[in-house]
């Protein structure tokens, strides 16, 4: 770990919460076309350990991309994406990408946790609104923030700001809840990191700072903290 950091404002591509991350003392490294919070001046191992209770991370710069339209599912299958019939379920691809089926005609692709897969970029390139196929690209990369809430206390924390029961007993791995959190609409996808419960939270970028503040406020009583991308890789065993 080095104390050298970048200024995220020097990059054209920025997370919608880069100011909050900077003010919280994040150390940034260049990644995914911008500056991503690598850590908060602690080792990845130490941050990962503290995430067992409750932690929040920002993954907004990682690839995420959506498709809508009558032929979305058939077209994605023809492109080699494994998408099942059931809605509100995320289908894990071989390369770790999650294909989140939000509706019979809508799928949101979210990158593997380290963003190694080129699936999102490849499909974004091959889809076009000019095509005959009714599967329209919905570029969520800049329109949707992407937060990760993880730890044993996450369901208890969510219970304060969300009406859906997210405990393991009723909300399993790879299930999706599209609901209201702190009065704003979000998509929640559960995809655990090793033994640690993990909830991906995606929503409209215009309200990113609002929800970030709400989450930090709700996390306070559980001693929740911010962690960087290094700790997430550590938890995922990568």
């Amino acid at each position: 770990m080095t104390s050298v950091t970048l200024n995220p404002a020097d990059f054209t591509r920025r997370s919608p919460v880069y100011r909050e991350l900077r003010d919280a003392g994040a150390r940034f490294v260049e990644s995914f076309g911008g500056a991503i919070a690598e850590d908060f001046m602690e080792s990845a191992e130490a941050e990962a350990k503290s995430a067992a209770g409750l932690a929040l991370a920002d993954l907004s710069l990682l690839p995420h991309f959506g498709f809508k339209g009558r032929e979305t599912v058939d077209w994605l299958r023809s492109q080699g994406v494994d998408v099942g019939d059931q809605d509100n379920v995320a289908y894990r691809q071989e390369d770790g990408v999650l294909a989140a089926k939000l509706a019979p005609r809508e799928v949101l692709l979210i990158a593997d946790i380290v963003g190694r897969s080129d699936l999102c970029a490849r499909l974004a390139d091959s889809a076009s609104i000019e095509e005959e196929v009714e599967a329209f690209p919905v570029p969520r990369g800049d329109g949707y923030f992407w937060f990760l809430v993880l730890g044993e206390s996450a369901p208890a924390m969510f219970a304060k700001i969300c009406g859906v029961d997210l405990r393991s007993s009723s909300f399993g791995e790879l299930e999706i809840a599209q609901t209201s959190v702190a009065r704003m609409n979000v998509v929640i996808v559960r995809c655990d990191l090793g033994e640690t419960p993990a909830y991906h939270v995606l929503g409209d970028v215009a309200s990113a700072s609002y929800l970030w503040a709400c989450l930090l406020d709700a996390m306070e009583e559980f001693d929740g903290r911010l962690i960087g991308h290094g700790a997430i890789r550590h938890l995922a065993g990568l």
Partner: peptide
């Protein structure tokens, strides 16, 4: 709070509708 069973999303608070 009243609950509505959304055919897509299941039971949700009526404030979401």
């Amino acid at each position: 709070m009243k609950i509505i069973h959304c055919p897509l999303n299941g039971p949700r608070n009526i404030s979401e509708f």
